[in-house]
Design a binder for these strands. Sequence first.
DNA 1: TTGGACTAGGCAAACGTTTGCGCCGAAGGT
DNA 2: ACCTTCGGCGCAAACGTTTGCCTAGTCCAA
Lengths: 362, 362
Amino acid sequence: MEPSSKTGAGANKARKPGAPVSLTTLSQHLGLSVAAISRVLNKAPAAKSIPKATQDRIFAAAKQMNYRPNVLARSLRRGQSMTVGVLVPEVSEGYATAVLAGIEQGLLQSDYFFFLISHYHREELIARSQSMLVDRSVDGMIAVDTPLSMHPPLPTITVSCPDEHEGITNIVLNHRRAAELAIDHLAGLGHREVAFIKGQTFSSDTDARWQAIRHAAARAHLNIDAKLTEQLEGEAPGHETGYFATQRLLASNRPFTALFAFNDVSAIGAVRALREAGLRVPQDVSVVGFDDVQSAAFQNPGLTTVRQPLRTMGMLAAEAVVRRITSVEEHVPAKQIVVDPELVVRDSTCPPPTKRTVKASQ
Amino acid sequence: MEPSSKTGAGANKARKPGAPVSLTTLSQHLGLSVAAISRVLNKAPAAKSIPKATQDRIFAAAKQMNYRPNVLARSLRRGQSMTVGVLVPEVSEGYATAVLAGIEQGLLQSDYFFFLISHYHREELIARSQSMLVDRSVDGMIAVDTPLSMHPPLPTITVSCPDEHEGITNIVLNHRRAAELAIDHLAGLGHREVAFIKGQTFSSDTDARWQAIRHAAARAHLNIDAKLTEQLEGEAPGHETGYFATQRLLASNRPFTALFAFNDVSAIGAVRALREAGLRVPQDVSVVGFDDVQSAAFQNPGLTTVRQPLRTMGMLAAEAVVRRITSVEEHVPAKQIVVDPELVVRDSTCPPPTKRTVKASQ
DNA sequence: TTGGACTAGGCAAACGTTTGCGCCGAAGGT
DNA sequence: ACCTTCGGCGCAAACGTTTGCCTAGTCCAA
């Protein structure tokens, strides 16, 4: 007649041995209601009224039967999936990948998983990805170098996306400082004729970086020759784009003693183009990259570059999005989080050649 | 009294304007049961008995109210989450990243999403990741260059994991052919003293590749000098490992005219070590890499390498795992899927120097 | 007139959790 | 003796789907 024995014996449904063990399984095993078990296992406040002895029984049974909560059911009920969506231009070498590594680390620390989608900078894919992620009930989003197409209905953090969406926190590099590091380095070495390669139009950092460069150049009394600025072209972010941009630069037949590329990958392409034109790096032309991707140190020559703390930026993004998801209070979130660059001097820069006879040797 | 008007007027619960629209919302709007709507929207066989006019009404309302099925509820009910888990050693430049790009593409084509976890080759992390993924109710798994710790209870595809787990399909390179391509290339150029850098012990390809190399060397009547074989050491898969391995090779003071590295990343490190020792690549020492990662072409010199179709391997893995998940019939799956390598000759290889005076110049 | 067969759907159970509320007994206060 | 207050749980609804089974009407043949 006592309820425990009744429920305990009332295990009318025999469990298949292979089937996963649910709260119901446990409740039959223990002669307790699923409610009680759920509360105890989740250490809910209501579990306070349940005596220690019972709690221990519950924990022991859960461990012994290897109970694993069904995340889908829990998510459905709780209305949060412990999942965030991550949008990147693409999974390849370089920028986004390094950030992604940081995101992964940061999210995993808080028990969040993520769905990854790459959109190859195609606008309709960005839109579609955003809504697919929402449909998948992610709790938030992180967008890396991605111009968001719609205003996201979820907590969202962007990395290097300067378009000012309302209520979105942007993780951004201190562009001004970055530009000054590179420009001052080159000017300090004595360079006066510096060529520039700007980023693709679709890349979110392009404008901000360029503004910063102009500012830093003016500050260093360095003249920017419009004829010595080129732009990365094409969708693919590979080395070729930098290679071609440099070829165009060389074709203009204006002499330059240094080149500041938009990123390391294009800088590497640039080095190749210079070399093919018979110019030595750094003796004839110094080259400065941007990002400090892993392979930058192992280029030949080792690439002088402005390091972005990419992995850190990813971690910051992850922490920020989790904070936004879990914070109940709606205190207005920071508009941006600024991280600082660092100049890494390697072997691709040196003082300019003393005689001014340098020219595309052709 | 008619049921339609009754249910239609019976919309007792007013929907919050911001709340997502569910089947219930639609059913109240249409005066139909959720069951009918679900069947029609899913084009279930039972929907056949529902007239075209009603179906059209349903579709129209779903579109107009922008109904999006709740994936969690659906997954819970159906018992499948349309999600697979992907295990990689780490998100960085090189091997795993390229495979990952293929996996992403392949999965997205079939409307599968994926959870990504990297384990940094740490055994306890592999075990933990595997069970976390199972807890997240993934429908299957793909493991890239990962020694699985437990036999997975789910459809699983591995990429380059030769440990023979029962019922697992492994995507694998034709190692024999790969070795022959490289060895025959070097032997054909006239190299007789070839150094080798093997992979880290934890890397799944290491053994198979080394066997294949020995076989190919024997076939080409090329002697393998045990003193001229080194191994990558350390956990991190960066360029440094190749750099240090090459330094050890040089320290042995045995002359060699060519070096076959385990992968491109270590080959790049090797080039730097050689250069620092005063050796020119390729004039003094030819270097052959493996993988053909994106930056290989833009090394200086451009790296001769054995290309693995990494992206394709990822796509194959994705397609295979989807096939395994969705196939009802339990026909024994293929043990492995073999893909073919390709030799990419660039500028890091040439015939050996004619005079045999080459030696570590120090 | 009865009995299929077909049409057009509805009911309710399930999937596994979480959680608001309620119930019962015992202890304690007045 | 009665009321209150806990302690120790249990009931059942809810999250949003999917799906096996049912019903109510209609049409047609026997």
